[in-house]
Amino acid sequence: MTAQVEIRDRRWPWYAAVSAIVVALTLSMISPADAVQGDLIRIMYIHVPAAWLAYLAFTVTLAGSIGYLATKRMVFDRLAASSAEVGVYFTGLAILLGMIWGKPTWGVWWTWDARLTLTAIMFFVYVGYLALRRATLDPDARAKRSAILGVLAIVQIPIVHFSVVWWRTLHQPPSIIRPDGPAIQDPLMVVALVAGVVAFTVVYAALVTKRMELARIEDAVVAREATLERPVAGEAVVAPDLSPEPGGAR
């Protein structure tokens, strides 16, 4: 099994990601300033896509977790783990960009309203998911445990998203997915936001592709180490029994 591992170093995900970001950046800079928040709205064109991609990433982790539990195929475990790591990155990015937007708009970097608090909890639960993976050495046990957590943790996504609708928060309610239709009329603003979401999706796909490549190589390393170390481990146990004198003489 280990002999057939030949993983190509693909470059195209990086090229696709860079071009998508360049297009989205240009559109976000030429779109009009907002009537109230002025140029600060440009931060929204990266903050909102980052938050959406975090939702998408954790949903893919759910899909990977279910896939693993149903089929026991390691490719699903690698997908779940890779997507969770990228999702943690996007969650952290959304929180940081939100803080940078919040300081000049609200007047504070952070406040404990429902949306912000629940997003922070979501961040730490998925950091916990990654920690659980590091704490478990056996590949099968690790895959199973993290898959269970990957399924359970998904309940947070609707709670985080709808927290601004269910409870009165400082954070504004959704602008796009809401009962009265989108709250963005200007076409250039819509284009800037959509371009941001598309670009971040391409970046997400690139990151997950490369992260899965890494996971495959790491799994191959572990498998090969296991086959190589078995005889060595046997010698290590036997060795002290064969030569008790040098140790006892000292």
Binding site: A35, M44, W106, L170, I184
Partner: peptide, 21 residues
């Protein structure tokens, strides 16, 4: 302590409508 609560509306500057949303 005062925080500005920004709403969910995005609209370009328009002198005819001073308070969008």
């Amino acid at each position: 302590t005062m925080l500005v609560k920004h709403d969910e509306n995005y609209s370009p500057e328009n002198p005819d409508e001073p308070f969008p949303g």
